[in-house]
Design a protein around this nucleic acid. Structure first.
Lengths: 175, 175
DNA sequence: GTCAGGGCTGACCGATCGGTCAGCTACGGT
DNA sequence: ACCGTAGCTGACCGATCGGTCAGCCCTGAC
């Protein structure tokens, strides 16, 4: 039942946003009462927290892996890792990108800015040039939006083209 | 005063989202009463509508320009036009991307899906291949997110690098 | 002086929000 | 047979939401 609630909440949050989804909406979708939600979870924020913990941990882990890499290795690992993470958590990505500014108060998401900073740093190949920073941001946003939008292509095609497209954006020679 | 209200609303909508901003918030920011807002505007939706009319028209105009182009001309015009539009309306872009799913009901934004479709078609060089469609979506998202995020670079640097990055993403030979 | 009307406001409204609480049901342990 | 408890619910709460309304203030026309 907890799992059922989380699934319903994930779908609704991704579709209408966190603030755009009421506890009643989730209860109806999950087929239970609003009071039942608050028996299983401390509150609306707790539901969001539980949904976003896993992707946040994944991002945090990726940033740690990237921290010890440099140059081409860092770029390739960053692209592959980020694309994989974004595809695995595409609904969560949609939630985060839609209402990021307000959510950074949540302790679970506190790690995101630094992790994304490390990701951008790796994507930029440790370069401080404005050109590289803009390009890195383009990759981060492009992958996220593409994954969140429902483009009608096979998953492996999507993954392959996201990686290739990101490497092209970064001006990284494709093997 | 109307202008002042619109400026305040634009800033707040971009920062906290449409649903995340109350009429009271706007009134405080604008330095007037909530009732005064509703004297100048028919309602909260009317404020949003007025804010998004101009970028919607710009996007619509761009899509009409693109419709008569093909091949490389279409790609280059699409990239330049979209980057220019996104930079000019970067706050509005942030609003739209944050809560797009719910907003498409508004008549003002009804033109957006088709216009974006045309834009994606031009960016893809009129190709139907999944590869080109994914790439086009990456450009649309990458430019929007980058423009909406506050990357600390000069405006002309940003514009140049966005165009160059987009063309690289599309695999378009740079002149 | 006075009157009309645009700009603006405080007080108020119904609806909906997130959250609380007492109590119901079903069931496993003893 | 009895009880404790986990799962769940309807009824209710205060806060806040978008929106309404009667009326105040100020200014320009006459």
């Amino acid at each position: 039942m907890r799992r059922h609630i989380l699934d319903s909440a994930l779908r609704l949050f991704a579709e209408h946003g966190f603030k755009g989804t009421s506890l009643n909406d989730i209860a109806v979708e999950a087929g239970c009462s609003k009071a039942s939600l608050l028996y299983h979870f401390a509150g609306k924020d707790a539901i969001l927290t539980e949904l976003l913990t896993s992707p946040a941990e994944g991002l945090s882990a990726l940033s740690q892996e990237l921290a010890v890499l440099d140059g081409d290795q860092a770029v390739e690992a960053a692209v592959a890792g980020y694309v994989g993470l974004a595809m695995r958590f595409h609904l969560e990505v949609k939630i985060i990108f839609a209402e990021l500014p307000d959510m950074l108060g949540h302790p679970v998401l506190a790690v995101i800015p630094e992790a994304v900073g490390e990701l951008a740093d790796a994507l930029a190949g440790r370069s401080e040039e404005p050109r590289a920073r803009v390009t890195a941001q383009m990759v981060i946003g492009g992958v996220a939006v593409t994954v969140a939008s429902e483009v009608d292509v096979a998953r492996d095609t999507m993954r392959t083209e996201l990686v290739r497209g990101a490497l092209r954006t970064l001006g990284h020679p494709t093997s």
